[in-house]
């Protein structure tokens, strides 16, 4: 096999474990699979596609990656009806209009750089060495935007009819996330390095809680993680994500410091973990068995 030249994206990171260590310094605990997928995306200069249930830390992973690489994270939040003006660039028409009215006979370049407003894709394209492009919740955008994105991700060019084509000097670092509310197009998945982020296993999740919330005791973290695990096994509309676990542990610890006893502190803070009335009603009768019994 040919030896692969070290891509500038991963300068200083010898292997996936080094990346995982750097991520953990940035307060993000990555599973070995996630670290490998991210490392490969950087080494092969391909976009990284992260899929997973809401709240497993997809966006956080991208932000942590940006931190580790020392890149500014440019986020494009997708929504139904997103269009080129929101994603690529837009001419500053009011300024152009004013300039046109003020020119009084002199000449002006109406399509000069002054009048062009960069949107996320264009600014990532122009600064591939210092930015990380995060395309968040791509499953929410329309099919047509997905098709357009496909074109962007394969050759990293944007053509502006008035001025010409802009090309990236090298492929920018791109992370896409999806909640999988719908299936993404095969062609898009094909171009990316893919990773399905699952709920972390209990040991890893406890570690995440301890890293993220410094006030929480180890016993509390383990109890909360065990309880959240039970909740995820139930058919809930919105099972608690990792963010909810961290916040629940933090909230219960806070209440405990103010004098609430242990199981009660968890019960009173349940609104941080379960955010759906139907789910609460469903869990209601068995809440005592699910709640962390004793902690700390």
């Amino acid at each position: 096999m040919r030896s692969v030249a070290v891509h500038p994206n991963i300068a200083g990171l010898a292997n996936p474990e080094a990346l995982a260590a750097a991520l953990s310094d940035a307060q993000y605990i990555a599973s070995p699979e996630l670290a490998t997928a991210s490392y490969l995306a950087l080494a092969l200069a391909k976009p990284l596609l992260l899929e997973g249930a809401p709240g497993v830390g997809k966006t956080e992973a991208a932000k942590a990656l940006g931190g580790v690489l020392g890149r500014q994270v440019i986020r494009l939040q997708c929504y139904e009806g997103i269009d080129a003006a929101a994603a690529l660039y837009e001419w500053n028409y009011p300024r152009q209009m004013l300039a046109l009215r003020q020119l009084e006979g002199s000449e002006i370049d109406l399509y000069g750089a002054d009048f062009l407003m960069e949107r996320p894709l264009l600014s990532a394209l122009r600064n591939p060495a210092t930015t990380l492009l995060l395309i968040d919740e791509i499953d929410r955008a329309d099919q047509e935007f997905e098709a357009f994105l496909l074109e962007f991700l394969s050759d990293f060019t944007i053509s502006i009819p008035e001025t010409g084509t802009e090309r990236a000097t090298r492929p920018p670092v791109v992370v896409l996330t999806s909640n999988r509310t719908r299936e993404l197009h095969e062609a898009l998945r094909r171009r990316c390095v893919y990773h399905w982020i699952d709920y972390p296993d209990p040991a890893l999740e406890a570690q995440i809680v301890l890293t993220r919330a410094s006030s929480v005791a180890q016993a509390t973290a383990q109890a909360v993680v065990a309880s959240v695990g039970l909740m995820r096994a139930e058919p809930l509309t919105k099972p608690p994500g990792v963010a909810e676990t961290v916040e629940w542990a933090e909230a219960a610890t806070l209440l405990n410091q103010q004098g609430a006893t242990w199981p009660d502190a968890f019960r009173r803070a349940i609104g941080v973990a379960i955010k759906d009335q139907d789910d609460l009603a469903y869990l209601g009768p068995r809440l005592d068995q699910i709640l962390p019994g004793e902690a700390a």
Binding site: T36, A37, R190, C192, V193, Y194, H195, D198
Partner: peptide
């Protein structure tokens, strides 16, 4: 892991 990531295997 390389296969999993590059062939985009759904869970």
């Amino acid at each position: 892991r390389a296969a999993l990531a590059l062939f985009a295997i759904p869970p």
